[in-house]
Amino acid sequence: MPDAPAATDDWVPSALERERAAYRLRATRRSVLIAAAATVVALLVVGLAVTSSPGWPAFRETFFNWDKAIASLPAVLAGLWLNIRVLLVCSVAIALISLTIAILRTLRGPVFFPLRALATAYVDIFRGLPLLLLLFLLGFGMPALRLAGLPNSAMFWGGLAITLSYSAYVAEVLRAGIESIHPSQWAAARSLGLSYRQALRYVVLPQAIRRVTPALMNDVVSLQKDSGLVAVLGIVDAIRAAQIETSLDYNYTPYVVAGVLFLILTIPMARFTDWLARRQGQHGGML
């Protein structure tokens, strides 16, 4: 058979190959050293320039005051917990709504025209409206209607505004993913007797979602930061908490604390995305 694996032999690298390997190793070492040295020098120069500036002592006192940082940490952390809750609840709701919208938008045939049109209108409206405007409309408008049975909490309406807006974006990402799957995959799935639903569920969606994962993770990180926008409705999130702390003595260190906390949340997410992308794209080769 042509597919028999090559037998293992007792290959010893030739002198030429050993020379090439040694050269690659030297070249790699040299590049790493140069890059590391350049980075250290650049950081030193910037650091020195900043710390030797005339305003540095006052700046450090206002933005990097350790005691203030420790003092404001509990309040900022409590605010961050709200961001995290908004992120978690909204993510789930966004996933469900956006998937539904994306699937409706990819339905073909005149029968589905009304559903398709509705889904398109949804995306047009909620992607077009600025999130802040949506927050005000829902957050202040809906409770003002005083409709019986509607929840009153600013948290609910704020979360809903974020969910509606993000679902429109994510739906478009998912739709692009679904439409990027070659029709031959649909044909192969349907030819086996899978229904439209099953072909979508087991063949098309898994491939589509894998393909758009980096874009989706982008939206998750963005959502993590935008979750704080509910603060415009009077809810205290991490940044609002920092602002309150700041107003006590005009020391801005709490903002830096909030910034660092957000980075601690988002950087692992970014690394995770990279890892996912790398795991999918193990192409090997020279490039």
Partner: peptide, 29 residues
């Protein structure tokens, strides 16, 4: 769908499902 399940078709470009293992490709239907 039931009719398609009674007819096997093999395509010029194989059209295997790239996200599934060989065994899962065969197991799906």
């Amino acid at each position: 769908d039931a009719t398609r399940a009674r007819i096997g078709i093999v395509f010029q470009s194989y059209n295997l499902f790239p996200h599934l293992s060989v065994l899962d490709n065969v197991l799906l239907a």
